[in-house]
């Protein structure tokens, strides 16, 4: 269903670019262990787009926060985040479809842990070009999230759960 006004959050290219940046930064650890499966990607995708929530995660983990501009910390979005994307697997799946079809993201299958995503050489080349301010912010957020790569999937879920409950109040 199309709304009568446009919303940048729903812009295809923007979301593709965000996803490329996420995969570029968070696909593997320093030791080249692949980390980015569907669930983790989904969580990172949400957190990167909602830096206030991301800071809350860091707070719970006791890590340094992202320095947020007033623009980000003091907005309507910051006090009432749109949680719909967290439950929208279709959206993420279609984005990944496009990215793989464009040969920007490659998929590796691991037994037990399922599919892991990383950029192709073309994807890398492309990702260097995202120099717009907003992309820099996204890249910064992604860098912060690197610290969460060592966390298990379940503890990451747990932390997210805590944030959601916090919001409920």
């Amino acid at each position: 269903m199309k709304l009568p006004f446009i919303n940048p959050e729903n812009d295809l290219n923007l979301n593709l670019a965000i996803l490329i940046i996420i995969v570029r930064t968070l696909s593997h650890t320093k030791r080249q262990t692949l980390k980015l499966n569907n669930e983790r990607l989904h969580i990172y995708y949400f957190l990167v787009k909602n830096p206030v929530k991301l800071n809350k995660v860091m707070e719970i983990l006791g890590k340094a926060k992202v320095l947020l501009s007033e623009r980000n910390s003091y907005s309507i979005a910051s006090i009432s985040a749109n949680l719909d994307p967290l439950f929208d697997r279709e959206g993420l799946k279609s984005l990944l479809t496009i990215l793989t079809a464009q040969s920007l993201v490659k998929v590796e299958y691991k037994k037990n842990d399922g599919f892991f995503y990383q950029l192709t050489a073309k994807g890398y080349e492309l990702s260097d070009l995202f120099t717009e301010n907003y992309f820099k912010e996204v890249a910064l957020n992604c860098n912060k999230l690197k610290q969460t790569l060592s966390l298990s999937q379940s503890s990451l879920n747990n932390i997210l759960g805590q944030i959601m409950r916090m919001d409920a109040f």
Binding site: P8, N13, L14, A17, F130, T131, E132, N133, Y134, F135
Partner: peptide, 10 residues
């Protein structure tokens, strides 16, 4: 800023 990013991404 998102729109600008969107244009650039495109």
């Amino acid at each position: 800023s998102k729109y600008k990013a969107s244009v650039s991404a495109k």
